[in-house]
Amino acid sequence: MPVLTGVSFRLSPGQGLVLRGANGIGKTTLLRTIAGLQPQLSGQIAGAGERAGYASHADGIKPALTVAETLRFWADLYRTELPADVFELFDLEDLRDRPAGTLSAGQGRRLGLARLAVIGREVLLLDEPTVSLDAFSVKRFAFFLRDRHLVRGGIAVIATHIDLGLDLPVLDLTPHRAALEAQGGSDEAFL
């Protein structure tokens, strides 16, 4: 069933975009579709695909692996080098050798976000990245986004309710909510 219609945007290197809209409007669906995890009913998505890195609200952390092992795994999987300052950047220096299972929710979230600094993707698709982060960690994450990612020509599409203090353009999805009688979707054949 169609969720959103008429959504269109174009981002140049160094640009970010914040997605807004009530719960259930389709922010996650939009991000997952751009990431290639589900097909769009119609329309085109260009430039993401192999260049995109996706982060959902689940961090995919394995309790049995340490913080350093977790980040090393993602670096190996993406065939990138582990940036030297990634632990400092996300305030994980003291936690390096802690099993991820012993981290608090906020610490785990920082580890999940640190993955984004490791995988070296130009287009970051972030679904509620700041959930369970304290104000200080939000500032650090905003610093990473602005001074480590966007400034180097990266692109970010962020679904979030809070203000990251980055002064990014906002796309409100509310007007794009698919009309009730919108065409498309697998149920349509049966109506």
Partner: peptide, 16 residues
């Protein structure tokens, strides 16, 4: 386990 902790979509969007 990869499904429960959300690793699966992250692995699926990896270069592998």
């Amino acid at each position: 386990l990869d499904h429960e902790d959300g690793s699966l979509p992250l692995l699926a969007t990896a270069p592998l």
